[in-house]
Simulated assay, not measured.
Amino acid sequence: MQLIKIDKALYRSRLNMVIVACIASLAISSLAISQTLIYLFPDESGSHFHWNLLGVIVSTVGLVATLLKLKTHPKMREVAYIWDLKQALNLIYRKNRKLLAAAKEGNADAMLALQFSYAGSRQLWQLDDNTITMSSLNDAQSKLDEWTQQYNVTLDITNYRSESLKAF
C-alpha cells in the first residue's frame, strides 16, 4: 500500500455521507425485515426478539456486502483508502514489539515498516483531527531517526511492502 494525499474536507464530507447512509439503511432495512417477519409469523407470547435480531443480522450482512461492492466506486475513494490504511497500520501494530526490537538492532525492513506506520498514523490522525497523541508519535519518530542515522539507513516509504512483515 502506498500513502496518497487526501483532501481533508472531501474525506470528511464523504465519510459523513457513508456514515449517514449506513445508519439509515441499517435502521430502515432491519425494521422492514423484522416487521415483515413479525407480520408473517406472529408469536402468541408477544416476544419478537428473534425476528428483530434476524432483521438486524440480515441487514448488517447486506450492508457489509454493499459496502464491499461499492468500495471501488470513485465517490468512495477517500473512505476506502482510509479503511485500507487502517488495516495496513493494524498489521504493523500487531508486530510492533518485534519491529521495534529489530529496528533497534539495525534491521532496515523493520525501520521501513515503522516509518510507514508513523507516516500513515500521522496522516490518519491529521485527517481525524486527533492531534492529542501526536507528541508520542513525534517521540517514536525521533527514536527511529536516531536508529537510521546510527545504522546509516535511508528510508523511502514508497518501497514498503506488507509482505516484509512476515519476517517478524
Rank of each mutant, 00 (worst) to 15 (best):
K98I: 05
E163N: 04
Y39N: 09
G62N: 02
N107K: 06
H50Y: 06
P42I: 08
T154K: 15
N96T: 07
Q141R: 13
Y151W: 10
S136R: 10
A113D: 02
I23F: 06
R97Q: 11
L10H: 10
S142C: 08
L54T: 13
D129M: 07
N130V: 10
D129A: 12
Q149E: 11
V20Y: 08
S13I: 01
T72M: 09
M76R: 11
S164W: 02
Q2S: 13
L112F: 06
M17T: 12
N152S: 14
E44L: 08
M111E: 00
L100T: 15
K166L: 14
A108Y: 02
L68W: 07
I23W: 02
L31P: 00
W51V: 00
G55S: 05
A102Y: 07
K95L: 09
S47T: 10
K5N: 11
D43N: 15
Y151H: 10
M76E: 12
A113M: 01
I132C: 01
K98H: 14
E44P: 12
K95R: 15
L67T: 08
T158D: 10
L85W: 07
T66C: 09
M111C: 04
L99T: 03
H50W: 05
V18H: 04
K95V: 12
L165V: 03
I38N: 11
S30N: 11
N152I: 08
A24P: 00
N138Q: 13
A65C: 01
S13N: 13
L112T: 06
M134K: 05
D43H: 12
V18Q: 07
H73N: 14
T66A: 11
L144M: 08
E163K: 09
W83I: 03
N159E: 08
L3S: 03
N130K: 13
L15D: 09
M76Y: 13
E163H: 05
V64K: 00
R77Y: 10
T154S: 14
S162D: 10
V18D: 04
L53Y: 00
F116W: 03
A167T: 14
F168V: 04
